[in-house]
Design a binder for these strands. Sequence first.
DNA 1: TACGCTTGACCGGCCGACCAGTTATGTGGA
DNA 2: TCCACATAACTGGTCGGCCGGTCAAGCGTA
Lengths: 197, 197
Amino acid sequence: MPRPSVEAERRKQILDAACSVIAKHGLQELRLLDVASVAGVSSGTIHYYFDTKRELVNAAFEYNFRHSLERRQWMRDESREPLELLGEIVDSYLPSRGASLRAWRVWADLWAEGMRDPALQKINEELYGQWRELLRNTIAAAQRAGTAREGDPELLANMLIGMVDGLAMQVLLKAKAMSLDTMRETCRAFIDQLIAR
Amino acid sequence: MPRPSVEAERRKQILDAACSVIAKHGLQELRLLDVASVAGVSSGTIHYYFDTKRELVNAAFEYNFRHSLERRQWMRDESREPLELLGEIVDSYLPSRGASLRAWRVWADLWAEGMRDPALQKINEELYGQWRELLRNTIAAAQRAGTAREGDPELLANMLIGMVDGLAMQVLLKAKAMSLDTMRETCRAFIDQLIAR
DNA sequence: TACGCTTGACCGGCCGACCAGTTATGTGGA
DNA sequence: TCCACATAACTGGTCGGCCGGTCAAGCGTA
């Protein structure tokens, strides 16, 4: 046997570097040499794991999405009071700083690119669907627990998701009228006024 | 005197072509030669009116935004019943087809690009602000008319705007759970449940 | 030795930017 | 009426830099 496979590890390392570069410079300015540099490998190594730039980029988008969901397993904790949990879920999705901010920047690029790329639409379909389902289930749980009023949980989840996404864009665009705090209050107000009993 | 200036007209023609190319292929694949071709001029003419590609792109984004607002002057009709008007405003912003769809595609690219470009943030600040103000004023008018319940109109406007933007992204991404019809119903439900008396 | 993995120089195509030259459209003098 | 002349508008060929992708060679571990 030759040396053991480092493929999984190396791929992750490269994808993580790609996400960092996308978050910092945007997909537009993504250079394979930059990714290689951040990942601490040579440009040749990138091509050893990914045939084309597009393949790398799409994999990075998927990695970013999947990674975000994995970091949020605690949201599926069914022992928590659902309405309270809902508030925390939304809080954790605010484009505040660190990991969350990086993930948002990459998402925004995914969306722009995804309008014309069916492969990215498929990634969005699967992973964004999980996010939508999580909110719907949490709202439904709150209804069963009696802390949320009646109403189609899918509809309410869609409203809330849309709101979070749209407001996040304005926060990322540094709109004066939409600071992080205003966004948080707006989302909380929505939950208080339309979802909570 | 030399020949009369056609600058305003020609600029518009080029910017319109640029918007078409962005909507169709994305900012990523924008080639000056394509813009020139669509505009029916030579590549040299592009550089005659715009020093750099970036200058053209930013001007195109501003043109797209401003153009959308201009096409919607009817929204400021104060003789209409405000709540009904609000519904029509939202309808007209759905990424349905034609002009509205093109504008949305360009917006999505603007947002992605605007995260790192202060010049684009400024454009967003000014023009998106008008859009926000329009909704706020319409909601406030409905409250005065007694067809909407009490509540901070700015807060409600922000909720609605965010929702429209976020849901529109999913429509553009062809998410199965968010068709144009579902989006329309979701927005209507929000108005019915949270704004209308 | 075998093989997975890595390197980095190199190549070729592409495209933004430049520019020298050309055309169109006006003015005013003879 | 017509002919310089001035200037704006426009053309399209060219060039230079950049970067994705290739590859032949090297490295390290079993």
